[in-house]
Nucleic acid binder design. Structure first.
Length: 579
DNA sequence: GGTCTATGCCAC
DNA sequence: AAACGTGGCATAGACC
């Protein structure tokens, strides 16, 4: 049922079957690394799946995938540890109050220990044994401590769900990295050539940029202007009589001068070149697949981060390069207005949930007569969740507060708590970190008798900053939990499709080591959207699975509270065709 | 040479 | 229209 895997020595693993309290059942098995994949595969073949307990999914599972082995369930000790150490729900336990241990250390950056995507079993022992982390692990003890902490929480259902969701997220992150996002370098190159001119060696300007740079210099009458240097451009513009203080896009756009147009053009195209140009393509696209390093729980709110490759910021400009293989489709889905819907559920604001009954919550808010336009509804909602005080959004707040008092009260209370330096907690139990030492120091200085006006003002400003963070934390963090549950359920549904289909399931290793050659699989995740790459014959079934999973996630988190989670969903050949 | 910060902009 | 949340990343330029 549950097996703890731990490094026993630089070349060995110990596998221990444990009971519901984490206590050892029978004898532990010691095996060399090169037998681990077979050991796991054999047990995954059984009808009743094991739950594998291990230190870091990125390491253990990355290597298993490279060896052609998938697992169904795991408990990621490091991710769970971070949640349990910091949650207000466990704050009273010995687990949370203990001195920090090795489990509180951040995991090594993935690049340092994750094997190349297509490495083989041959590398397994070496990567597992590499670096300072080759020390013996006390994973079984850590697992017992975590279970003990959970047993001391009166109503731990949500927290248990959070740990399960976080752990399945870690499996999915490793699987997506392994499979990669289908990428057509030919399409990417054509887009770059159209925007920039033909490819040139690194460090030289493509023709289109060179031409724009020439125009900019000509208009300014200064051949020394370097459009890649903001300070240099700023000085040149000031000399030309444009009294701007920054060269950012929206400030430039406010002036009318012949140089503005070519300058904005230059910046836009130069950004494409440096961020997602040929250098990026060479580095990150391997065999027509993009393999980013996802970092589950990388943001304080529980959102994922990424490390390398910039998967969080794939510009819309190049999304046409994300293309399904011949005979395959992309199922692209995003949750419509996820965060406001989450807020409605968190606060049990039935009026706000009712406005979201259709597919467009902002339209629903307009239809309820709260504001006059969809744009107003959107700006006001975002402002409420981000803590806007000025401008359009600030002006609309009173209307929103009148219509949805419960929802607004929830975010306001979260903001006030943050301003006092307190923790706030997401729906399933992830808590915000404490503000840093310099924040505390600023507050302390301002509260002393002789504090200067500047100190008081600084402290108030810092307090409000932290309040905006905690205000957003409860919504963003709970939305991230919904997204994990959604994706976990999609993964279950895809496995069901796999088992219904005629393609033989199970171990599907190919010469390249790829596990996912012939079946629908997740290939991309970005906060509230997913992409599944699927054989065309399964595309409609996949779309239905993804849609049902959204409803499932809503029920899993909020039971019978009447809040909908509609999706924008499309079956397409290219990512750019969705929406 | 390397490290660090500021800038600007991409995504949700 | 404007400066309000979470991130990553490339570059220039200051600094060691």
């Amino acid at each position: 049922m549950t097996i703890v895997l731990a490094r026993n020595s630089p070349t060995e693993v110990v596998a221990s079957s444990v009971d519901a309290h984490g206590e050892l059942l029978g004898e532990a098995t010691v095996l060399p690394f090169d037998r681990l994949a077979g050991f796991v595969a054999e047990r995954e073949g059984a009808p009743e799946p094991e739950r594998w307990v291990w230190s870091d999914s990125s390491r253990w599972y990355g290597d298993l995938l490279n060896a052609g082995v998938r697992v169904r369930r795991c408990h990621d000790l490091r991710l769970s540890h971070a949640i349990l150490r910091n949650s207000t729900l466990t704050a009273h336990t010995a687990f949370a109050r203990a001195e920090p241990t090795a489990w509180d250390q951040p995991v090594e950056p993935p690049s340092a220990h994750v094997a190349p995507v297509h490495s083989t079993l041959f590398d397994l022992g070496e990567t597992m044994a590499s670096g300072r982390s080759a020390a013996r692990e006390d994973s079984a003890a850590e697992y017992r401590h975590q279970l003990q902490a959970l047993s001391e929480v009166p109503d731990a259902g949500r927290l248990r769900l959070l740990l399960a969701a976080e752990s399945v997220g870690a499996l999915i992150a490793a699987e997506m990295r392994h499979a990669g996002l289908p990428w057509r370098t030919e399409v990417h190159d054509a887009l770059l050539t159209a925007e920039l001119g033909p490819r040139v060696p690194y460090g030289t300007r493509p023709a289109r940029l060179e031409e724009l740079a020439g125009r900019i210099r000509g208009i300014l009458g200064d051949q020394s202007v370097n459009p890649d240097s903001p300070p240099n451009v700023l000085k040149a513009l000031n000399r030309a009589g444009l009294m701007i203080t920054s060269t950012n896009r929206w400030e430039l756009a406010e002036y009318s001068h012949p140089v503005i147009e070519p300058l904005l053009e230059y910046k836009k195209r130069a950004r494409l070149l440096t961020a997602n140009g040929w250098t990026w393509m060479d580095q990150w696209i391997i065999d027509e697949r993009f393999h980013p390093d996802y970092v589950p729980g990388g943001a304080a709110t529980g959102r994922w981060a990424t490390s390398g490759g910039g998967a969080l910021q794939l510009p819309k400009q190049i999304r046409a390069a994300v293309t399904a293989d011949p005979g395959w489709k992309l199922v692209v889905a995003d949750a419509a207005q996820l965060e406001p819907r989450i807020l409605a559920a968190l606060s049990a604001d039935t009026a706000m949930a009712a406005a979201g009954r259709g597919t467009d919550m902002y339209a629903g808010i307009v239809a309820s007569g709260v504001v006059e336009s969809r744009e107003h509804a959107k700006v006001a909602m975002l402002g409420a969740m981000y803590g806007a005080t000025t401008g359009e959004s600030g002006r609309l707040m009173p209307k929103l507060t009148r219509a949805y008092p419960r929802a607004i009260r929830l975010v306001e209370q979260a903001a006030r708590a943050g301003e006092r330096g307190e923790h706030v907690t997401s729906w399933l139990g992830r808590s915000s970190p404490a503000p840093g030492a310099d924040w505390q120091e600023a507050q302390r200085l301002a509260s002393q008798p002789g504090a200067s006006a500047a100190e008081e003002s600084r402290a108030r400003s810092r307090a409000r900053d932290w309040g905006r963070f905690t205000r957003n934390f409860v919504v963003q963090g709970s939305a991230a939990e919904w997204a994990l549950c959604w994706m976990g359920e999609i993964r279950n549904g895809l496995r069901a499709i796999e088992q219904r289909s005629s393609t033989p399931p199970g171990r599907l290793a190919t010469a390249s080591g790829a596990v996912f050659e012939s079946l629908p699989h997740l290939v991309f995740f970005l906060h509230d959207e997913i992409i599944v790459h699927t054989p065309e014959e399964h595309a409609e079934e996949v779309a239905q699975t993804v849609t049902e999973a959204a409803a499932f996630a809503g029920r899993l988190l909020f039971r019978d509270f009447p809040v909908d989670f509609p999706l924008g969903i499309a079956v397409v050949d290219r990512y750019s065709e969705a929406k």
